[in-house]
Design a protein around this nucleic acid. Structure first.
Lengths: 149, 149
DNA sequence: AAGCTTATTGATAATGATTATCAATTTCAA
DNA sequence: TTGAAATTGATAATCATTATCAATAAGCTT
């Protein structure tokens, strides 16, 4: 079994969601595909496996795939939302709550890619980077507007 | 007159578009506002100036503002499209040479967009960020492999 | 300033993408 | 196997945006 399938199943279980044949179909279609694809694209691909698959299911499953970290919004400026594959989580950046100090590690392929573009653009040989995002977490934002800085 | 207004007028003329009171109203409302705002937000703000303003005009003018380089898509994952100020609001990040200490200021919309995704993903209310890229500049990389850290 | 050409306007309808609803079906733990 | 609960596909509904269009306004030209 592909690693992505394993991760998907694990994610579903962790959320108390069920592994259904429709979800397997959408995942399979997604894994077969490349590049940025819209829900419509994915529906077309999935229908080749199961012609009876419903449109709504694709939208729903795509959201799950994104939540599970297998797909991510490609963030197009125009047209329908498009998703792309996320294969690796190689790097961690930090998200810090200025209210309670909570630290979240995250990683974002788009940022990594963009950073490499910068290095190239300025003719630099990369050696490292540090990215800190600061803001109020949902809890702190709910309580008040107080911050640490 | 604000510099933004001048730029807007200049852009309109360069494209053979007319400076109308409706467009002035939308621009004024946009310049007064802060943060990421949707067409709906902007319509509400603009209606305080001119209650008769039409919704379609806001969409149309927002597109012009983006083309003119005064606004840009804030690239939200969910909900309506949101725009943010660009002119005089540009964000600078830093690229530092670990060899000679040279400091380059750069700005990369993709990174900004991705950061906003992170904030949203974790339910944070953004307050700021710091990004430092470190590497060897072309000059230093040519001389030797020596670094400062 | 008046006339003229053309862009622009606001209202409305139309479209496109996504989400909500719901009865029938499927999953899965007991 | 059974039954509660989640999921499904079809459909309607919603939301954001764009197209249409007759009335109006901008801004040349004279």
């Amino acid at each position: 079994m592909k690693e992505e399938q394993y991760l998907f199943i694990r994610y579903l279980k962790s959320k108390g969601l069920k592994l259904t044949s429709a979800r397997e179909t959408v995942l399979t279609a997604f894994l077969k595909s490349e590049g940025h694809l819209s829900a419509e694209d994915l529906l077309a691909a999935a229908k080749k496996i199961d012609p009876g698959l419903g449109q709504a299911t694709v939208f729903r499953t795509l959201k799950i795939l994104a939540d599970a970290g297998l797909a991510q919004d490609a963030c197009q400026d125009e047209g329908p939302r498009r998703y792309e594959h996320v294969y690796k989580h190689s790097h961690h950046d930090h998200l810090i709550c200025v209210g309670c100090g909570k630290l979240i590690e995250f990683c974002h392929p788009e940022i990594e890619k963009a950073q490499n573009e910068i290095f190239r653009e300025f003719g630099f040989q990369a050696s490292g980077h540090r990215l800190e995002l600061r803001g109020l977490c949902a809890d702190c934002a709910g309580k008040s507007g107080k911050t640490r800085e």
